[in-house]
Amino acid sequence: MQALLHAIAQMASLSSEALRLFHGRGGLHPGCEQWSLDLFPPVFVLTSFAPASEAELAAVHAALAERVAALAPGQALNWVYQCRHEGQLETRLMAGAVPEPHEVSEQGARYRVHVLKGQNHGLFLDMAEGRRWVREHVAGLAQPERLRVLNLFAYSCAFSVVALQAGAGQVVNVDMSAGALATGRQNHALNGLKSGASFLAHDIFNSWGKIGRSGPYGLIILDPPSYQKGSFVASKDYARLMRRLPELLLPGGHALLCLNTPKLGVAFLQDQMAELAPELSLVQRLANPPAFADVDEDRSLKVLLYRRGD
């Protein structure tokens, strides 16, 4: 785990924004594939995808304590360990405390996170460039207030927050988890967004009628889980989303397709889109944040931007 400890030792400052500090899963640090380290200020979150020994955790604690003391003398060290190894799921507060409520910043927006509860913390850090693109795209429109956005698998509605901040007129957030959407409502309130967003706690595949009534849309965001037993399996269900895009999307509108699994590459999305939604053409693949660099880009997060012809 020397690469992880070295990354901690090389931290130049304690960021005021949420970000990834070490990405072992990208394969660029042989022997450290199990580790990732995030900062949700003021809390570090170490995640291991394999069992970790107490000696390894002690080494991380010592490294974090030394670096925090050097960068911010007198500041408390707060860190959480999470193990995601199959059959050994665990989340443990290792030092300090976690604020309640815990709110973090990214690119001028505030979000509610929960690093001690569940495997997902309320904000997917690898999607930062996707959120940046949405913000810049909406802000660059001649009449952003006329833009209707459909945010499918909205989770905690971070895409909705940035779209509305940039001037979008309406965002329809759809997710089958009422709890996630409740956090989404909190995120809108946290950013002073009092109107423009709707929140539908529905199974998307059973709600196309309701979803279509607010359309057609100028921007559709699809950020589904790669595998969620009983609700979505990307390998078979993504096609069901693609088929709906031409009828939901305005001519000249954009669709942002996201897929985060190493088991399916870019061709999985491109080939199916060419077959199922030929009215849309690929514009670009968005770059991932540098902190999420991967030895094989086909394994990393895929964010593809499509545009429907005029």
Rank of each mutant, 00 (worst) to 15 (best):
E66G: 11
P225F: 01
E297Q: 15
A182E: 14
V134I: 15
S105G: 01
N187R: 02
V134M: 10
V171G: 03
E297N: 11
A139N: 01
R307T: 15
S13I: 02
F232Y: 03
A182D: 07
R84F: 08
S300E: 03
A234C: 10
G218S: 08
H202F: 10
S300R: 09
H121R: 07
D294V: 02
A189G: 07
G218I: 05
P224D: 05
F232V: 09
N173C: 09
S195A: 15
P251T: 06
A76S: 12
P246T: 06
E297H: 09
E56D: 14
L4K: 04
A163Y: 00
V283C: 15
R299L: 05
L257D: 03
V266D: 08
V171C: 06
L305G: 13
A291F: 07
L190W: 10
G118D: 06
D203Y: 13
I8S: 08
A7G: 04
I221C: 09
V43N: 05
G309L: 12
C32V: 14
L222S: 02
G24F: 04
L89T: 09
L123M: 06
T47V: 15
F159N: 00
E86Y: 07
M242Q: 11
M94G: 04
S214I: 01
P30L: 15
P51W: 12
L264Y: 05
S177T: 04
K210T: 11
A287F: 13
R244E: 14
A18F: 07
R112F: 01
V98W: 01
A239N: 12
M273S: 03
V162K: 01
P73I: 11
T183L: 07
N187W: 02
F205V: 11
A52Q: 13
A128P: 02
I211K: 07
P51Y: 10
R131E: 01
L193K: 07
W79T: 01
N260P: 03
S53V: 07
V283A: 11
V45N: 01
G209K: 13
A274S: 15
G108L: 04
M1E: 12
G215M: 08
